[in-house]
Design a protein around this nucleic acid. Structure first.
Lengths: 327, 327
DNA sequence: TTGTACGCGTTATCAA
DNA sequence: TTGATAACGCGTACAA
């Protein structure tokens, strides 16, 4: 726990000189440098990063907030941010926001992180109200991923939710299905709402009327998904195929789908999707790129505060055909 | 970006009074408090957490370092640490260490985190050499999870690797198998080495001689796992069942196992293990408890630096029988 | 109840 | 090339 002062005293120089040695300032004579370095070693001196941080007024840390770290999609985003951060000598402060069951949690969590004078923040939000972020956004760069901010101008890195959903639904239509269910958690998430739009567009393009009864929500848990699928299969709806709008729902639906096969395409790839029986046909997102671009943008904004940059970047998605679409 | 000073000036009081208001010090007259709070609102004052942190000498942050965030096992550990941290008003600084391909990375990553005067550190290490942590451990509480530290006295929260491997192997023996392969990544990981021991013990208990040729390593990737399984299946080894020592290997082996079924038990549960065909019989660990206990221990050590506490906590594991063991 | 003085560890400024 | 001084924003100790 030696401080710079102590090293300075031991080496018979001023603290500033020690600082210079530490920061590779060329204006230090080789002898002085050697003496200081000797004292540093002797005292096992380690710079106090907090003090530097405090002095500089900006913490070399990027905050990352996601709904759920255990979801591989968000874990991949966090990992990508971390890598990009590392490449810029930044650390990563991670916060989970939950899936929006408690909407106030997001704000509380983000504010506590923002107080820390971060160099930037990447958020995959679980709510839609971000007007309160306005004053923060004026001071530190904030980038949204996966979902756009509500009521706030900020960088956003998204994927083509609507187009992907359209592709996945059309694919089922191409296999001859006309009664196609929509499986999802909640439409309050803008991504899911967009995917529902894509689903409707695909139906419309094929001249299939949209039927509200085929939209089954609350499917993010296993019982929820089982219920939803059971409702869709009843004679009345008479669904023969399902588009799952989100990987959590798809995974939650797997036991049911395995037990009672039904044609299925899904938004969002996930580990082992290709090893299941049937292997799931998915629209794959690219969480790593999302995270990397967002982190890179933060760094860029910090370096060039008034450079004009596009606010919204939409990544394409890719249909990966496996077997679940032709069950 | 108003500071306490500015708020004080605006309210016509000293900075200290503002500080008191902020910290709910009872020794402030209601009128003064009201005036100060008014100024705080006007100036949109937000306390600078960095300054507080610096002043106190200890950052209210728990570091968490794991090999790989995308692995659900480690993601669950991180999530649990985060929850426990939240309950104690601490934030979570996350670092990935990699799977030990580059052994120096672990030290570099940990040292950069440790410099930040953390309140504590949870590590799931990817290397075996931790003697260098000694001086750090003297100053801040460090808890290991999943794997014990090498050459260092520190709290460790582990699971019964050997017993679990023994159970999983015995289970295959109970199904009549005598030529049982061991699938793994690398024996340099102490957990995997322990699981190999458990495997050997199970064989020994059944009077089956151990055969080095049945230990197939390098199976953490899909091609690696495919190779390993192919080697085991050759007429000479003539293996009829496999114990996979680690969830990464199990997941990597899935395509091969699905294509060419073989009796299988595995160490480590993972998402959808029960929805695969066959559903994988596993020995389940408890990452959430591991993370929670470790974080709680850090808090406890910080509060009571010299309370005597057990250094090593070993959690039991649970065999979950599904169908892969009777393929 | 309120205020003054000082220090946390580091670095920028300016002078020597 | 080196050093003295001040400052970052807040909280502690002590005084009034």
């Amino acid at each position: 726990m030696a401080t710079m002062r102590e090293v300075a005293a031991a080496a018979g120089v001023s603290p500033k000189t020690v600082s210079r040695v530490l920061n590779d300032d060329p204006h230090v004579s080789p002898e002085t440098r050697a003496r200081v370095e000797g004292s540093m070693r002797e005292l096992a001196y380690v710079p106090n990063a907090m003090a530097t941080t405090f002095r500089s007024g900006r913490s070399p840390v990027i905050g990352v907030a996601v709904p759920d770290l255990v979801d591989p999609f968000f874990a991949a985003i966090v990992t990508a941010v971390e890598e990009e951060a590392l490449a810029n000598d930044l650390s990563t402060l991670v916060t989970s926001l939950g899936h929006g069951q408690d909407p106030s949690r997001e704000r509380v969590a983000l504010e506590s992180v923002l107080r820390r004078q971060l160099s930037g923040l990447v958020v995959a939000p679980s709510t839609n109200d971000h007007a309160w972020l306005e004053p923060w956004a004026a001071r530190i760069p904030i980038a949204f991923v996966d979902r756009a901010p509500g009521d706030l101008e900020a960088d956003a890195f998204l994927q083509d939710d609507r187009g992907g959903a359209r592709d996945a639904t059309s694919h089922l239509i191409g296999h001859g299905h006309r009664r196609i269910g929509f499986l999802g958690d909640s439409l309050s998430a803008p991504t899911i709402a967009e995917r529902l739009e894509g689903y409707r567009e695909a139906l419309a393009a094929a001249g299939i009327p949209f039927d509200d009864d085929l939209v089954a929500l609350g499917a993010a848990t296993r019982p929820g998904a089982a219920d939803a699928l059971a409702r869709l299969r009843e004679p009345n709806p008479g669904v023969t195929a399902v588009f799952s709008s989100d990987a959590r729902c798809t995974m939650a639906a797997m036991p049911t789908v395995t037990a009672h096969p039904i044609a299925l395409t899904a938004f969002g790839d996930f580990p082992l999707a290709d090893s299941l029986t049937p292997a799931i046909t998915v629209v794959a997102q690219d969480p790593a790129t999302l995270g990397r671009l967002a982190a890179a943008r933060l760094v860029e904004r910090a370096a060039h505060p008034d450079r004009a940059l596009p606010r919204r970047t939409v990544l394409p998605v890719t249909l990966i055909e496996r077997t679940s679409c032709r069950v």
